[in-house]
């Protein structure tokens, strides 16, 4: 079972953070290749594993950096807002150790946050997430 484990200095303070890459979907990559267009390079981002997020979220400028267009629009509810429309994008999430998951991510401003991506339960449903607070580690297995 492919997996990775990350240890931080203080996981209580930072949360479960992981450096990942975001890339365009394989089908779109094939379409762009067939059209002779440039394939955007995967973009490195800092992500947090968030069991409180129904879906994966990317900072809104990342879609522009990857050059992808919306493939849906979802309504989002948070503790301070309700039914906020947000674009959806199909992305590939590249975790450490060669683990890849394709999912639809919604875009949000994520202003003032040190992270650019939330990994939500749409990704976690495929694997096992182990958070070990007293050792400041977490593992994700698929």
């Amino acid at each position: 079972m492919p997996s990775f484990t990350i240890q931080t200095q203080n996981i209580e303070s930072t949360g479960p953070l992981v450096e990942i890459h975001l890339a365009i979907d394989a089908t779109l990559e094939s379409v762009l290749k067939a059209q002779g267009k440039t394939i955007p390079n995967p973009v490195p981002v800092l992500a947090m594993i968030d069991t409180g997020a129904t879906a994966t979220v990317i900072r809104e400028d990342l879609a522009q950096i990857l050059g992808i267009k919306p493939v849906g629009q979802a309504l989002v509810t948070t503790p301070s807002s309700a039914y906020v429309p947000c674009y959806e994008y199909l992305i590939r999430v590249l975790f450490p150790n060669g683990i890849t998951v394709e999912t639809t991510a919604i875009s949000a401003s994520m202003q003032g946050q040190p992270i650019q991506c939330l990994i939500g339960r749409d990704v976690l449903k495929h694997g096992v997430f182990i958070y070990t607070g007293y050792t400041n580690t977490f593992s994700l297995c698929f």
Partner: peptide
Amino acid sequence: VDIPLNFVTNYFD
């Protein structure tokens, strides 16, 4: 009806 996605933290403001 459309079912909203729920987030317990707020990254959308």
